[in-house]
Structures are given as structure tokens and as C-alpha cells.
């Protein structure tokens, strides 16, 4: 199995496209860093002396609004309650919301690069089986003393390793850019998590790593789907097209459906944003972290089963 993964890894990195992907991520992160740096407001700190008063007015406003909008959607109420709770916590524990923009802020903002990295992971996942058919090399690959299932598993693991590499590169490089352009703060305020009415403090570094991991779940599921489509239809364009479309539109479509239908909570994209359980409110009332994880596992198993079932039975007449 190790040899198979090594083979796949070699094939991946013998192609220039792979390096272009990594290069683009590095370029983009550098670019974003420079933009933010050049727009950085030197007066960020203004008003930071009386932040407690400001927060108090915000709290009062929110509480007033809450009374006025009795029959607003639950999600809106929840989000107001969250604001209030966090602001109260800040005042009680003397945690100013005004922090100088630093490496942490940048790494946080840069976490959106994961969407971009996800794009590349989807492209790799969509190509890793389909290309063998396009190149005709599938014939030589499948007449080795190795079962088709093992070959498919090795290919999937390679996709996951590539995704991991992209994440590590994104995280490490954005930290580097962050330190160089924005410096490290003397004290790092903890991140505040709000979930189910309680507030917990979390170390900023840990928080960011969790943020990156959770944000990449979406990418992982889409890559798995692209992999499945590629194995089932032997067509990488279809796999790439559909996956990327769903990556951009899946969330919105699901949110739209979620307003009307209860069953929308079983849609994959209603469950890929696990951040909603840590710092936000669930898309549909009654959804829990455990529920989402279950749904994700079920989708994962379906994707893998389809890929293996079809790939195993396929007549290779390329």
C-alpha cells in the first residue's frame, strides 16, 4: 500500500500543474497580505479607551431590539443573544475587542484561502482516476497483482495527503506572511466561543487550527464527491464542474431550501459548516454537532461505496 501511495505521489509531483497550484496559493497569500497591509488603518485604536461604554450601548440596543421583534426567526434571536453574551463577557473579564491587527488576525482572514485550496484539491481528486483512463495507462495499472480496491484506496489516500499538504502550506505560509507584515502581539487575547448560551475562552493558536480543520471539511467532502464522480463516470471535467459548482452554490441553495423545508438538514451542505456549532447558530433549529457528523459520515460512506462498487465492476475497454 505504501508503494502504491508513493507511486501516486510521484505521478502527482511529476506534473507541472501541481506546482502551479502551490505557487498560486503562495502568490495569492502574499498578495492578500500586501493589500491588507497597505490598507491598514493606523487609527485602529481610536475609541479603544472607552470600549466598555460602547459595548454597553450595543448590549442595550440589542436587548431593546429583542423585545421589539418577538416573532422574528429563531436564528435572528439566537444571533442577537450571542452578541449580547459575548459583549457582556468582554466587559466582565476586561477583554477589549480592539486588538491591533497582528499575525493572528491575518491567519484568521487568510483562512478563506481554504476555498481556493479546495478548488485545487477537487481538481486533483477529479483527475486521479479519470486521467488514468484518458492516458490509457489504466490498462497497465490494473494488470498488476493488486486488487482494484487497493488501487482506489491508495488514490484516495493520496488525495487526502495532498489536501493536508495544501492546508499546511496555507497555514504555515499565512503565519509567515502575517509575522513579517503585521508582527506578533505582546499579549494575545483568547478567542471567545459561544455555544448553547455559554462562553468559553480558547487559545488563539488552537482556535485557528480548529478553524482551519473545520473549514476544510467542506473541501474534504467535495473532494470525496469529485473522486467518486471521477471513478464512476471516468470523466474529470464532469467531476470538476459539478463539484466546483456545488462548492460555490451548494451552501446558498441549501440555505434557501432550509427556510422552507425541514428535510434540508439532510443535505450535505447544511452540515459541512461545522463552525456553526462553535461560533454561530445552526442553520436549522434542532441540528446538533452530532447530527451533522452523522450526516457527513453517511455521505462519506455512500460516496466511497459508489466509487468502489463501480470501479470494481467496470469493464476497462479504454
Amino acid at each position: 500500500m505504501l508503494n502504491l501511495i508513493k507511486n501516486e505521489w510521484i505521478k502527482l509531483f511529476k506534473r507541472t500543474g501541481t506546482f502551479v497550484m502551490i505557487g498560486l496559493i503562495i502568490l495569492l497569500l502574499t498578495f492578500v497580505g500586501i493589500i491588507i497591509r497597505s490598507q491598514e488603518n493606523p487609527d485602529r485604536g481610536t475609541g479603544s479607551e472607552n470600549w466598555e461604554e460602547q459595548l454597553q450601548t450595543e448590549i442595550n440596543n440589542r436587548e431593546q431590539e429583542l423585545k421589539d421583534i418577538q416573532n422574528a426567526p429563531q436564528s435572528m434571536i439566537d444571533s442577537y443573544q450571542r452578541d449580547i453574551a459575548i459583549n457582556k463577557y468582554r466587559i466582565e473579564h476586561n477583554l477589549s475587542p480592539h486588538q491591533d491587527y497582528s499575525v493572528w488576525g491575518f491567519v484568521y482572514d487568510a483562512s478563506n484561502i481554504i476555498q481556493f485550496a479546495g478548488l485545487f484539491v477537487i481538481i486533483v481528486a477529479a483527475g486521479i482516476v479519470a486521467s488514468e483512463f484518458n492516458w490509457g495507462t489504466i490498462k497497465l495499472l490494473l494488470i498488476r497483482p493488486i486488487s482494484r480496491g487497493k488501487i482506489l484506496v491508495a488514490k484516495y489516500i493520496t488525495v487526502i495527503l495532498f489536501a493536508l499538504l495544501m492546508l499546511i502550506i496555507s497555514f504555515a505560509y499565512s503565519s509567515l506572511v502575517g509575522v513579517i507584515l503585521f508582527g506578533t502581539p505582546e499579549t494575545t487575547a483568547p478567542h471567545l466561543n459561544y455555544y448553547n448560551g455559554t462562553i468559553t475562552e480558547q487559545n488563539m493558536g488552537v482556535h485557528l487550527i480548529i478553524l482551519y480543520s473545520l473549514k476544510s471539511i467542506n473541501m474534504l467532502m467535495l473532494a470525496t464527491m469529485a473522486f467518486m464522480i471521477s471513478a464512476v463516470f471516468r470523466n474529470s471535467s464532469l467531476a470538476i464542474g459539478l463539484s466546483i459548482f456545488l462548492m460555490f452554490a451548494g451552501g446558498q441553495l441549501t440555505a434557501m431550501l432550509a427556510q422552507k423545508f425541514e428535510w434540508a438538514k439532510y443535505i450535505l451542505f447544511a452540515n459541512t459548516e461545522l463552525m456553526q456549532y462553535i461560533e454561530g447558530v445552526p442553520l436549522i433549529e434542532g441540528m446538533t454537532l452530532a447530527f451533522s457528523v452523522m450526516v457527513l459520515v453517511v455521505y462519506f460512506i455512500i460516496f466511497q461505496f459508489l466509487a468502489h462498487y463501480v470501479f470494481h465492476k467496470r469493464d476497462v475497454a479504454a
Binding site: 508513493k6 511529476k14 495507462t137 494488470i143
Partner: peptide
């Protein structure tokens, strides 16, 4: 299949690699 070596129609290889690297790919699989 471990007893069999074969060429089916044209022997398509990974064009972006050298002949040697191609053979190493297959060597690792047996």
C-alpha cells in the same frame, strides 16, 4: 495475474515521466 505480463493494444505510459520512472512505477507494484 501475478504470473502474467501483458501489453493490451498500445502500451500507453505516463508521458510526463522518463521510461525508467515508468518502469519503476510498475516495479513497485510487483
Amino acid at each position: 495475474i501475478s504470473q502474467v505480463g501483458a501489453i493490451v493494444e498500445n502500451p500507453e505510459m505516463y508521458k510526463f515521466m522518463s521510461g525508467y520512472q515508468n518502469l519503476m512505477q510498475f516495479a513497485r507494484m510487483s
